[in-house]
Simulated scan of single mutants.
Amino acid sequence: MKIVAVIPARLKSTRLPNKVLTNINGKPMIQHVYERVSKADLYDVVVACDDKKIYDIVKSFGGKVMMTRKDHINGSSRIAEVASAIDVDIIINVQGDEPLINSKVINQVIEAFSDEECVMATLKQKIENERDIMNPNCVKVITDKNSNAIYFSRYPLPYLRENKAQDYFKHIGIYGYKREFLLDYVKMEPTELEIAESLEQLRVIENGFKIKVLETDCKLVGVDTQDDLKRVSKLLKHNNV
């Protein structure tokens, strides 16, 4: 299979403006992401951007980049534009604000497609910090016995009626799609649960498709705040990832 990672990168960000171009220990964030993603078992890596500043930076460090429309409502729509223009079997969607991304994580997603029936895959991780269980920004996921997603929610899942010990899992936002499924998916209308939770992956479940969810123990640190940026910079500086 021809597997390509696409990194959607937009310039505007509410909490950290221009964050994908933020300098981290001498390199823009997008370069850290690109170089780490490139270590995975992939045919190619492409940045999908909406601004010439990002385009020029990626070109300057020798990366592959494609300019996409500015009117995309989410990353899935942006990578679908790339998928429609290239010869590929599987698309891996890696966020542009994950400078500590581990190639092992990407390879885990790729492994899901050894099952020919798999059309979409993602990851989960056991929640270790109890505060994250009630944190609506930490998306929880529950799966069936075949590791397919039952539901994603910002609310703690499952509800513990008898207060018994229970493992909770957070969703790790890295996705893999079969190309044709991705192109069909972005044409689907937003669904009620998707809108209620503001979680676009629920559209897949509501339309009757399965999402394979594999567990990973790799630690990821996305960058949304200045504190995140300082933490990532420190970890990279000391090669602690």
Rank of each mutant, 00 (worst) to 15 (best):
K187N: 05
Y185A: 01
K145R: 11
V119R: 00
I205N: 10
I91G: 00
R203G: 12
T191W: 09
I92P: 00
V186Q: 00
R161P: 09
G173H: 05
E200V: 12
N137S: 06
D115S: 13
P156K: 11
N137K: 05
M188Y: 03
L182W: 01
V109S: 02
E194W: 05
D144H: 08
E194Y: 06
S198E: 13
L182K: 00
R131C: 07
L182R: 01
F169K: 12
L183R: 02
V204P: 04
G173S: 14
I195Q: 13
R179H: 06
I110C: 12
P190S: 09
A149L: 11
Q201E: 04
Y159G: 04
F113N: 03
N107P: 10
M134K: 14
L182D: 01
I174T: 04
I150C: 03
R154C: 02
H171I: 02
L100E: 10
K126S: 04
I91M: 04
E162S: 08
L100C: 14
N163V: 07
T143C: 15
L182Y: 01
Y151E: 08
P190L: 05
N146Q: 14
V139Q: 03
V204H: 03
K126N: 04
K104P: 02
I172N: 05
N107Q: 11
I91P: 00
I90W: 01
M188C: 01
V186M: 03
C118P: 04
Y151W: 13
S153N: 02
Q125D: 06
Y155G: 02
C138Q: 06
P156D: 09
T191D: 13
S103F: 13
A165G: 04
D144Y: 08
K124L: 07
T191G: 12
I90D: 02
M120D: 00
I101W: 05
E116M: 09
A121Y: 05
V204C: 10
N146D: 15
V139I: 15
P190E: 11
Y185W: 00
E117P: 02
Y185C: 00
E194Q: 14
K104Y: 10
R154M: 02
M188R: 01
N163F: 15
V204Q: 04
C118Y: 03
Y175G: 01
D132H: 08
I110Q: 09
P158E: 07
L123D: 04
Y151F: 15
I91N: 02
N135F: 03
I142A: 10
K187E: 08
K145L: 07
I205G: 08
V119H: 00
E200A: 11
R161T: 12
K140A: 03
E189P: 08
K140W: 03
V105F: 05
K140G: 03
M134C: 06
N163C: 11
T191R: 09
Q166Y: 07
L183E: 01
C138D: 07
H171M: 08
K187T: 04
V139Y: 03
T122P: 06
D115A: 07
K164W: 09
E98W: 13
D132C: 05
E189F: 10
C118E: 06
E128M: 11
E180L: 11
I133V: 12
D89V: 10
R203Y: 08
I133L: 08
S114E: 15
D132N: 13
D97P: 11
L123F: 06
A165C: 09
G173V: 03
